[in-house]
């Protein structure tokens, strides 16, 4: 699936993340993360499970607050915004959730119409045209009357995409957009992410661990590890790098810098009863 890459992105950055620390309870997730996202680019954020990828989206969207650090989106410091300023900023975001997060009590049409009805005063006749255009862009105008339960995973993802771009956002956030999709649907969604980004002049942040799909569409790939940006690469770098961690990730090797085994006392000690057995007996390890 050859994809047309955009010209080198404009150097101005839309998102500027500076020295962000974040911990769930006592468990540190981000430890001094700094990152900038340039206007117009598609940035893929990769990393193992628990590396803080999804947390990063929550922080940018202002759904969670960092322990310290600044998150500037279009010049506004997200953690410092009050509710109304945050909501005003969010109307310029589009977010695609892992499984689409369509409203199950609304039809496909009403799901896409939702942002217009909530955020604008447009008459229904105009909303109808806009909804049909957005659905046409994702190829699902014919599915307007269906309910989310009648859609396949890939279709649901595309409807959610149409809903996310409804208000012509400046920034698109994608949380694992390829999870659970077959190869064809993955290709369709990946191509849509790129096409929507270029057609509407968006900036896209794609959190994923689907390497193949993201290498096809991303301008830049960032690998998170230990709560920081571990590597900042172009897609072609990812294919050729000799970095052990990135290689393990790219080639899907079970053991390497990311160990196969969860930390545990030596097996022999545990079998002979010398080590604690709390983790075996279901206590918290």
């Amino acid at each position: 699936m050859p994809e047309v890459k955009t010209a080198p992105p404009h150097p101005a950055s839309l998102i500027e993340i500076k020295d962000v620390h974040f911990a769930y309870d006592e468990r540190p997730i981000l430890r001094g993360l700094s990152l900038s996202v340039r206007k117009g680019e598609v940035l893929a954020v990769m990393g193992g499970s628990g590396s803080g990828k999804t947390t990063l989206l929550g922080l940018i969207g202002g759904r969670i607050l960092p322990n310290r650090g600044d998150i500037l989106v279009d010049g506004q410091n997200v953690p410092k915004l009050d509710r109304s300023a945050l909501y005003a900023l969010r109307t310029r975001f589009g977010m695609l959730f892992q499984f689409g997060a369509l409203f199950t009590d609304l039809s496909v049409y009403d799901n896409v119409a939702f942002p217009y009805r909530e955020q604008t005063n447009l008459p229904e006749s105009v909303i109808r045209d806009l909804v049909l255009l957005k659905l046409q862009a994702v190829g699902l105008r014919g599915a307007a009357g269906l309910m989310p339960s009648q859609l396949s995973g890939g279709m649901a993802r595309r409807v959610a995409l149409a809903r996310a771009v409804a208000l012509d956002p400046m920034l698109m956030l994608y949380d694992e957009p390829f999870t659970g999709l077959d190869p064809i649907s993955t290709g369709i969604v990946a191509r849509l992410i790129r096409r929507l980004n270029d057609a509407f002049g968006l900036t896209s942040l794609v959190v994923t661990h689907d390497l193949d799909a993201s290498l096809k569409i991303a301008d830049r790939v960032i690998v998170l590890a230990e709560g920081k940006v571990y590597r900042d690469l172009t897609p072609s770098d990812v294919r050729t790098t000799s970095d052990a961690f990135v290689r393990q990730f790219a080639d899907g090797l079970p053991d390497g810098p990311v160990p196969f085994h969860y930390p545990a006392p030596p097996l022999l000690d545990q079998l002979l009863g010398k080590a604690g057995t709390a983790s075996v007996e279901g206590g918290t390890p």
Binding site: R90, F97, F103, T104, Q119
Partner: peptide, 15 residues
């Protein structure tokens, strides 16, 4: 709705 991110999605749509 919470488990399927519908509430989070609504919140991110500034609703």
């Amino acid at each position: 709705m919470q488990a399927t991110d519908q509430i989070a999605a609504m919140d991110m749509m500034a609703v």
